[in-house]
Amino acid sequence: MTRFDLRAADLRALNSPTKYPSIPTYHELDPRNGGLLESATAFPGDVIATEKVDGTNSRLVLLPDGNYLIGSREELLYARGDLIGNPALGIVEQLRAVADRLIAVHDGGIHVYCLELYGGKVGGAAKQYTKDSARFGWRLFDVVLLENWATALTWPQAQISAWREAGGQPYADEERLQDLAATARLELTPRLFRADALPTSIEGMRELLTSRLPETLVGLDGTRGRAEGIVFRTPDRKVIAKARFQDYARTLQRRS
């Protein structure tokens, strides 16, 4: 059995398989102008709809040797025990205590807890969630359970990236995700509804967004501003897509 040692690990190789991949849009994006095309993602059967929170993608990477890493979507910002961490967007400051709690009960493998950190001064949408620039919130939205990490860490960067973007990362299904969130005492992104079919037209999806999510459900101090959109996923997490208000508004405005 290969023994993991963070101090001997290639951090560049470790960064790539633990990144969160791009989520495709429910309606295909037109590469010419960024508008939406009528081609919609096909979901086979049951679909779970969750609020898409507009913050910054953050990750807590729990490691087999009892260490952890904290990262943004693109970069690793902090390792357990570091004296200095990258202060970008307040990710390390806000989530270090969460990582300390999770690693205390971690039982091996490389597990990546994917959270959206929001509020505070995180982007232009912060005011939709709070009036207090010092107040942050976070919601868990996915967990990668990379048990066979030794093989993936030997691949070339291009291979890891292609594997990640093609959906190769082993994600927890909905039932396991609910269990992991409860054990970790982390709130999930709000579950809005389950359905066996979604609108296939752009107009139909815009109507679903406005009727099902008229305002955010994760406001921090009574603030109930605009939501960013909805993420749709199958219970096994094999198919996932996002629908953002701004994409539909822009597309329909151009048409009119």
Rank of each mutant, 00 (worst) to 15 (best):
C114W: 08
R255N: 07
T216D: 09
E175K: 06
V218G: 04
S211K: 10
A79C: 07
L192F: 08
A99H: 11
S58F: 12
S58W: 14
P235T: 10
K131N: 11
G168I: 13
T130E: 06
R206E: 03
D173L: 08
T56V: 15
E203P: 04
A166P: 01
T223Q: 09
L213Q: 07
P190A: 02
I110G: 11
A243L: 07
T216G: 04
I91Y: 12
L117G: 12
D196A: 06
L29N: 05
R250D: 01
V53N: 01
D5K: 07
V47Y: 02
G229C: 12
L69D: 04
R191S: 05
G66C: 06
L115C: 12
R96G: 09
T216M: 11
T56H: 09
I23M: 13
R224W: 02
Y118G: 04
V218W: 07
E165D: 15
P190T: 00
T216Y: 14
E228G: 00
A150G: 10
R139D: 06
G219N: 08
F4C: 10
D30W: 00
L153G: 08
V98T: 15
L146V: 03
T18Y: 02
D221C: 08
L63R: 13
L208V: 12
E75H: 15
E74I: 12
K121E: 09
I110K: 12
D196P: 01
I110R: 13
S211W: 01
R135D: 02
S256M: 00
T41W: 06
D179T: 08
G225W: 06
I202Q: 08
L83E: 14
I160K: 15
R32L: 06
T2R: 14
I160C: 00
A97V: 12
R96F: 05
E147T: 15
V98D: 01
K238D: 03
V218H: 15
T183C: 03
P24A: 05
V105W: 08
F232K: 10
D247S: 05
L63W: 13
S201R: 00
S211D: 09
E228P: 03
T251C: 11
G109N: 10
R3M: 14
L11T: 05
R191V: 06
A166Y: 00
V61H: 13
F245K: 00
T130P: 13
G119L: 03
R254W: 00
I103E: 07
R101C: 02
W138Y: 15
L153Q: 07
L145I: 13
L180A: 07
I230T: 00
S58V: 13
C114L: 15
G66H: 13
G168F: 04
R80G: 01
A243Y: 03
T216I: 11
L145N: 14
L198P: 07
V112G: 14
A40C: 09
R32H: 11
A184C: 01
A13N: 12
R73S: 10
D107F: 04
G35W: 01
R233H: 11
S39A: 14
G168M: 08
R59Q: 10
V105Y: 02
F4A: 01
E203T: 03
K238Q: 15
D132L: 02
A99D: 02
A126F: 06
G219P: 03
A166L: 05
L89Q: 15
S201C: 04
D10Y: 06
P199M: 03
E28F: 00
R12L: 05
G35V: 01
G34W: 02
